[in-house]
Every structure is written in C-alpha cells, then in structure tokens.
C-alpha cells in the first residue's frame, strides 16, 4: 500500500524545468530519503506534493487523495517542515504549538496533552514560555518537527531539517524521526548529509530535475558498484 504515488510530476518556471517528469511511490510508515544537490529540484517537488506549488503537469496521490482535486483533504493529513524555520519568532514555544494545533482542529483538551507530551519528550517543558526568537537553532528544529506532528499526520515532509545543527542534535532529531515512523507516520525527508541517507529505508537521487535512482541504500550501492552513498551521490551530481 503506497501513501505517496507520484506520476510524471513536472514543474517549469518559464523555460527552466525544475522538476522533469518524475514518478515514484512511497510506502506507508517508510522513511524515504530524497537526495540531490542544491537546485536539483527537491524542494520544488516537495512543495508540489504539499500543495504549496501548482504542478505544470503530472498527478500525484498523497495519503490517498488526488493532488489536484482534493488538496484540502491532503493538507489535513500531512505535516510540513520548511527548509527555512517558519514558526513565529515572536510567539513562545507553547503559543506556536497551540496556534498550529488549533488550526488543525485538534480538540483543546487533547491538544494540551499532546503539547505536554512533546515538550516533555524534547526536554523543553521548563522553556515552554520562552520566545522562539531566543532559543537555539537545534531546539527550533526539534520544535518545528514536533509541531508538524501535533495533528497526527499520515505523512511528514521534512525539507533539510538538520542543516546547520550540531551532530548531537542531529542524532536526537533522527531518534525523533524513528519514533514517529514506528508509530506509522511516513517520513519524506531531504538531506545533504550522506550518513543520514543511510538511515533511510529507501532513497532517491535527483539531479537537474530528473529522478536518477531509487532503491534501498544497499541495493543502490551494489547496483552502481560503489562502496558508499557518498560515492553514489558524487557520481550523479558531477555528471
């Protein structure tokens, strides 16, 4: 059973093709790594899947709904964490969570319990009334991830969630990802870190708008005759 089915998705900006006719499927509960160099079209593809960007052509079914005709339903079922931190800087940790939880119509009592659960898990309980502008980047990223999970989405889209954070926070972040995946949430993640790519169950590599490869990290290494994902990546990016 696939929860993401992408068929011939294309996005052109004028004469420039950012995403060129890509097709792939992602299984429910899978951690799917979406790799590619800067400008390969990862963010554009992700934004189309989240309903933030209109595709030029092609279709997709996200969480069982059609991207073109049922985008409202899709939005209820997905969580999204943008490349750029985009929670409100001038609200506190708790205010941000309450705001987004409310927009997703999580019942009040239930929402408070979930927020408390997340904050305890993140060890941020005693900082819950701190303005987000004053907390370190690592906390911000974990907060953004937890906020994206508040309404119990079926799929979470993470756009370079760990760029710029230190290795310890990255490890903590990945344990959060595993935990969510274990609860059945599908994780769709873009990253630049090749070690992170090997944490994924399956990965794909995009270059210049094309989807070059897709498979488990081990399969792909054997298929291309390389030892590390790093080599795999450079192979496509340099071509």
């Amino acid at each position: 059973m696939y929860t993401i089915e992408v068929h011939n998705l294309t996005k052109r900006f004028g004469s420039f093709t950012a995403v060129n006719n890509i097709s792939f499927q992602v299984k429910r509960g899978e951690i799917f790594g979406f790799l590619g160099a800067n400008g390969a079209g990862k963010t554009t593809a992700m934004k189309m899947m989240c309903g933030l960007l209109l595709p030029t052509s092609g279709t997709a079914r996200i969480a069982g709904y059609d991207l073109k005709t049922e985008s409202k339903q899709i939005k209820k079922e997905i969580g999204y964490m943008s490349q750029r931190f985009s929670l409100y800087d001038d609200l506190t940790i708790k205010e941000n969570m309450t705001l987004f939880g409310t927009i997703y119509k999580v019942p009040k009592q239930e929402l408070n319990e979930r927020i408390e659960g997340h904050l305890t898990e993140l060890n941020l309980m005693k900082h819950k009334d701190q303005l987000v502008s004053s907390i370190p980047l690592g906390w911000k990223q974990k907060l953004a991830f937890s906020t994206a999970l508040l309404h119990h989405p079926k799929i979470v889209f993470l756009d370079e969630p760990t760029s710029g954070v230190d290795p310890i926070v990255r490890r903590e972040f990945w344990s959060l990802i595993y935990k969510a995946a274990a609860q059945g949430v599908t994780i769709f993640i873009t990253t630049h870190y090749m070690d992170e790519a090997s944490y994924c169950e399956r990965i794909s590599i995009m270059a210049e708008g094309d989807l070059k490869l897709i498979g488990t990290p081990t399969e792909l290494k054997i298929q291309m005759g390389v030892n590390t994902i790093d080599e795999l990546f450079t192979h496509f990016v340099n071509r």
Binding site: C50, G51, L52, K72, K75, K76, I78, Y80, S82, S86, L87, F100, I103, Y104, K105
Partner: peptide
C-alpha cells in the same frame, strides 16, 4: 508558508 500548508 507554514500557514498555507495547513487546511486553514
């Protein structure tokens, strides 16, 4: 963008 991705 974070608002637009919600069903609001």
């Amino acid at each position: 963008e974070q608002i637009n991705v919600t069903p609001i």
